[in-house]
């Protein structure tokens, strides 16, 4: 269940909207931010807020790249595999990440911290090779830089997670 205040805020947004459906993506993103991904429960709650059948949101959620219908880690790493990043070493960086995290593309680390996904050109070709972690861009990447980023995120996670 969404916390009451989150739900209230989203409901207010919907009520203020001239066409509630135009907020479908925003509401799903917000609910996803809360749950980490769009579980069935999350999708159904979002549908109730938007005022449509869950199927209507499923039609959208399964279309877009940044709506996750399966569990993802706290940090979703989207590695750009489009042409410039690809020629600038995408494959070896990907392999580096996989090795470093001990997972394959599409998988999540057992500690629930990282998920590795590919993404199409993210518009950082001038800083290629690049990747996106929770919608923040990083590049140009080298294996050393990647290690550094992962360490920083691990530390951040350790700091903010109550033990």
């Amino acid at each position: 269940m969404l916390p009451t205040n989150v739900k209230q805020m989203l409901n207010q947004q919907i009520q203020a909207a001239e066409h509630p459906r135009e907020l479908a993506i925003d509401i799903m993103m917000a609910v996803q931010d809360h749950y980490g991904y769009l579980s069935d429960e999350a999708l159904e709650e979002a549908a109730a807020i938007v005022g449509v059948d869950p199927l209507k949101l499923e039609e959208l959620a399964t279309f877009y790249t940044f709506l996750y219908r399966e569990p993802v880690g706290r940090y979703v790493i989207h590695i750009c595999d489009s042409v410039i990043c690809w020629m600038n070493g995408y494959e070896s960086l990907r392999d580096h990440l996989c090795k470093k995290l001990g997972i394959q593309m599409g998988e999540t680390t057992p500690d629930g911290l990282f998920t590795l996904l590919p993404v199409c050109c993210i518009g950082y070709c001038d800083r290629s090779p690049a990747m996106l972690i929770n919608k923040k861009a990083y590049g140009p990447l080298t294996p050393a830089k990647i290690d550094e980023i992962l360490e920083t995120l691990r530390a951040e996670a350790a700091e903010t997670t109550p033990s």
Partner: peptide, 17 residues
């Protein structure tokens, strides 16, 4: 409204939620 179209590209899927 209980039969729709989901997914994208060559994975387009018609069915129920």
């Amino acid at each position: 409204e209980d039969l729709g179209v989901m997914q994208i590209g060559s994975r387009v899927y018609y069915g129920r939620y």
